[in-house]
Simulated scan of single mutants.
Amino acid sequence: MVRIGYTMMSEQAGPRELVGHVAAAERAGFDFSVVSDHSFPWLDAQGHSPYAWSVLGAAAQATSRIPLMTYVTCPSFRYHPAVVAQKAATVQLLSEGRFRLGLGSGENLNEHVIGGGWPSARVRLERLEEAVEIIRSLFGGGYVSYHGVHFQVENAKLWDLPAEPPPIGVAVSGERSCALAGTHGDLLIATEPKRELLSAFDAHGGAGKPRVGQLPVCYDTDREAAVARAHEQFRWSLGGWKVNAELPGPAGFAQASAHVRPEDLAAAVPCGDDVEAFVDAVRPYVEAGFDEIALVQIGGDRQDPFLDWSERTLLPALADL
């Protein structure tokens, strides 16, 4: 049976709110949770971007059952991979084994803040591969030195290691990232229900490993209000990752999405309270072969109604999948 998750969307809510939301998602019966790791929101209208790792530490203490996961952390620009390994090991200990480390090659939106420029996708994937190798070595215990093309590590060691290290997920968008995920990852992460991504993942060693997808939704008893909110806060999502990985800030996303209409969002994102429309939006992920789908409720101040409705209506309907 497919597992349904809840997304702590850090671009649309403050840190205390995010922790409260994931605690409520646990009570509502969601199977797992994920959190975005950003330094900027996609659009000014979203209005937030707290430090995801502090949120995770608090969430680990505010919950007792629901698994936690980064969706996703870039371990190769803002953060050095040795620092990511320490953070992930600590959250795994705090959560008593409920944490998974989701990694990706990053977006200019978040990584530009260190002023190091933004290299090609090929270089970003090279950096990600080295980062995963370093993190795995540190999870193995002992002292680690690493001399790669992009990263250097000298006698690093994690002094607080969990008995079971966090599984590592790798975000994919094409053949090369799928090969990296299949070879180096414990699970696949994607934002589109493309069967060809899973096939490429399997071809490179991913067969039998979990695959996690993500889907934005916009619940509201007033469908017009839901469509308007989705358009205001999520129109950036229709740009595709070849665009979204390159733009440096919310102003660029606002300009790039200026001609996206509310009806365009309504066609791509289930809006309103028709539960069948939400089930129909999840179904392509199930049919493609995803094991887990994390839902993103659009609107930081509209989480409580969504979670109440999910417990009563949406999660029972999705169980039939």
Score class of each variant (00 low, 15 high):
residue 160 D to P: 06
residue 85 A to L: 12
residue 111 E to W: 12
residue 318 L to W: 08
residue 272 G to H: 05
residue 243 V to D: 01
residue 315 L to I: 13
residue 112 H to C: 04
residue 127 R to V: 07
residue 43 L to M: 09
residue 63 T to P: 08
residue 252 G to S: 15
residue 245 A to H: 14
residue 24 A to P: 03
residue 1 M to W: 02
residue 189 I to Y: 07
residue 148 G to K: 02
residue 234 F to S: 03
residue 307 L to N: 09
residue 149 V to T: 15
residue 276 E to Y: 02
residue 255 Q to C: 03
residue 231 H to W: 14
residue 201 F to R: 11
residue 217 V to I: 15
residue 95 S to T: 06
residue 160 D to G: 04
residue 192 E to T: 15
residue 108 N to D: 01
residue 29 G to M: 02
residue 52 A to Q: 10
residue 91 V to D: 02
residue 130 E to M: 09
residue 135 I to F: 11
residue 90 T to C: 14
residue 10 S to M: 13
residue 311 E to T: 07
residue 287 E to Q: 12
residue 317 A to T: 13
residue 132 V to L: 12
residue 227 V to Q: 02
residue 39 S to F: 15
residue 116 G to I: 10
residue 153 V to C: 11
residue 219 Y to I: 03
residue 148 G to P: 13
residue 148 G to Q: 11
residue 160 D to M: 13
residue 275 V to N: 01
residue 231 H to K: 07
residue 292 E to R: 06
residue 19 V to K: 03
residue 227 V to M: 03
residue 87 K to H: 07
residue 276 E to L: 05
residue 42 W to E: 01
residue 125 L to S: 08
residue 51 Y to N: 04
residue 214 Q to E: 14
residue 9 M to K: 03
residue 96 E to P: 05
residue 172 V to W: 02
residue 230 A to P: 02
residue 113 V to A: 13
residue 294 A to F: 12
residue 258 A to I: 11
residue 196 E to I: 12
residue 297 Q to V: 06
residue 192 E to D: 10
residue 1 M to R: 13
residue 31 D to G: 06
residue 179 A to P: 04
residue 66 I to L: 12
residue 201 F to H: 13
residue 24 A to I: 02
residue 189 I to A: 03
residue 66 I to M: 04
residue 265 L to S: 11
residue 271 C to H: 06
residue 221 T to M: 01
residue 299 G to T: 01
residue 11 E to Q: 15
residue 318 L to I: 10
residue 129 E to V: 11
residue 180 L to C: 12
residue 126 E to T: 08
residue 197 L to R: 11
residue 131 A to Y: 05
residue 175 E to M: 06
residue 230 A to G: 09
residue 26 E to F: 03
residue 69 M to L: 10
residue 306 F to E: 06
residue 305 P to R: 07
residue 230 A to H: 00
residue 62 A to V: 08
residue 213 G to P: 14
residue 137 S to W: 05
residue 246 E to C: 07
residue 289 G to A: 03
residue 198 L to P: 03
residue 53 W to Y: 14
residue 156 A to I: 08
residue 165 P to E: 00
residue 156 A to E: 12
residue 304 D to T: 14
residue 139 F to L: 11
residue 183 T to P: 02
residue 237 S to P: 01
residue 76 S to G: 13
residue 110 N to G: 06
residue 180 L to A: 08
residue 185 G to N: 12
residue 127 R to N: 05
residue 320 D to W: 07
residue 117 G to V: 07
residue 184 H to A: 14
residue 74 C to Y: 06
residue 91 V to N: 00
residue 180 L to H: 10
residue 213 G to R: 11
residue 113 V to W: 10
residue 137 S to P: 07
residue 110 N to E: 09
residue 31 D to Y: 00
residue 314 L to S: 07
residue 65 R to A: 11
residue 191 T to S: 13
residue 116 G to K: 15
residue 95 S to Q: 12
residue 129 E to N: 10
residue 120 S to F: 11
residue 252 G to V: 05
residue 66 I to C: 06
residue 94 L to Y: 10
residue 256 A to D: 09
residue 235 R to L: 00
residue 302 R to N: 15
residue 308 D to K: 14
residue 205 G to M: 13
residue 206 G to H: 10
residue 213 G to T: 09
residue 125 L to A: 06
residue 168 I to C: 02
residue 153 V to M: 12
residue 278 F to Y: 10
residue 11 E to D: 14
residue 298 I to M: 01
residue 266 A to H: 03
residue 118 W to F: 14
residue 230 A to I: 00
residue 71 Y to Q: 02
residue 212 V to C: 09
residue 234 F to W: 13
residue 181 A to M: 06
residue 56 L to V: 05
residue 134 I to T: 10
residue 146 Y to D: 08
